[in-house]
Design a protein around this nucleic acid. Structure first.
Length: 321
DNA sequence: ATCTGTTTATCAGGCG
DNA sequence: CGCCTGATAAACAGAT
């Protein structure tokens, strides 16, 4: 939708690659997955530059979706109307971006098929993810209101170090959207407070909006943006609390938080049980307040925490340069 | 017909 | 210079 008067300064090409833009779109959705058309919409809503030459960039974007292993397709239910599949981020691509920044991706995400436990193909990954999602749902059904955390690879992935690059999706989006329900964005991450470099990062943060012609006005707080943003849908781990309901079947997408720091590695034992028991201190996901508690306390940004999440994921794939 | 998804190819820019 | 990443174009197949 055109915003007369603002395009004059907002038609510059954003400094993000298509991969970044796509990842942003996916990350910004409550379900952590979007159909192609929604990805288009997200990008066009946010970045006026992409309201033109749509054929060109959309072709490129589709190319990226198919070409990069970091994007996986989540098939629609047979009884679910609509074209195309949903697209999600591969669970292990969290460290794709340097320091979690969408400005630069240093490592190319590549799925390896060496690991027998690892889903070799995106489709398998999706299947695996959905299976876990189902298990989680089952646990939810059995256990009441509290969702168990996602399997280990999710733990810490979104909250490993406490540091969030200013261009990380959490930061970008957090500044950019009002929560539909007027909810604060505490669900995302305790980001700004965690900045270790207030001088630099603060500057960058404030530049968003003021100095970003690529996006809309101050932090893209665009009321017109129909984004089904996280809001109260996230647990502290970035786990969407709102299950997907595809044609009656509940197939929650797997949240794939962009990890702020490159995973320095981890070789943890293979993925344990799909659903680890509730960790002590793990967030009662449905409560915004408790999610805050969890983000600020159960994940005290220690290196060891950093290893917890991505570790298992690293078993599935690696980022190859 | 249009949209979605895959694949191949080419080119530019950054980096070691 | 070679390699890698990203952007773009294009052809094509399949789904809706």
């Amino acid at each position: 939708m055109p915003r007369p008067g603002r395009n004059t300064y907002s038609d510059q090409k954003p400094p993000y690659s298509y991969i970044s833009l796509t990842a942003m779109a996916i990350q910004s959705s409550a379900e952590k997955m979007l159909p192609l058309s929604e990805i288009y919409k997200f990008i066009m809503d946010r970045f006026p530059y992409y309201r033109e030459n749509t054929q060109r960039w959309q072709n490129s974007l589709r190319h990226n979706l198919s070409f990069n292993d970091c994007f996986i397709k989540i098939p629609r239910r047979p009884d679910q109307p609509g074209k195309g599949s949903f697209w999600a981020l591969h669970p292990s691509c969290g460290d794709m971006f340097e320091n979690g920044s969408f400005l630069r991706r240093r490592k190319r995400f590549k799925v390896l098929k060496a690991d027998p436990l690892a889903p070799a193909k995106p489709a398998e990954a999706a299947q695996y993810l959905q299976q876990q999602a189902k298990l989680r749902l089952s646990a939810l059904a059995a256990g009441g209101t509290h969702l168990p955390p996602m399997s280990s690879y999710n733990l810490g992935v979104s909250q490993p170090s406490g540091f969030k690059h200013p261009f990380a999706i959490e930061n970008i989006i957090a500044r950019e959207y009002k929560m539909p329900g007027g909810l604060a964005f505490s669900a995302v991450q305790p980001v700004p407070a965690a900045y270790p470099l207030p001088n630099q990062l603060g500057a960058v943060g404030s530049s968003i909006g003021a100095g970003w012609p690529h996006v809309y006005g101050s932090g893209m707080l665009d009321p017109a943006a129909p984004l089904s943003m996280a809001g109260g849908d996230y647990s502290a781990y970035g786990v969407p609390l709102k299950p997907l309901c595809h044609g009656g079947q509940t197939l929650p997408a797997i949240p794939v938080p962009i990890k702020p720091t490159p995973a320095a590695v981890p070789a943890l034992p293979a993925l344990p049980a799909p659903i680890p028991p509730l960790l002590p201190g793990s967030p009662p996901a449905l409560s915004p307040t408790s999610s805050h508690t969890a983000t600020s306390q159960s994940s005290p940004a220690t290196p060891s925490d950093t290893l917890t999440g991505p570790a298992a994921a690293a078993l599935h794939s690696v980022a190859v340069h």
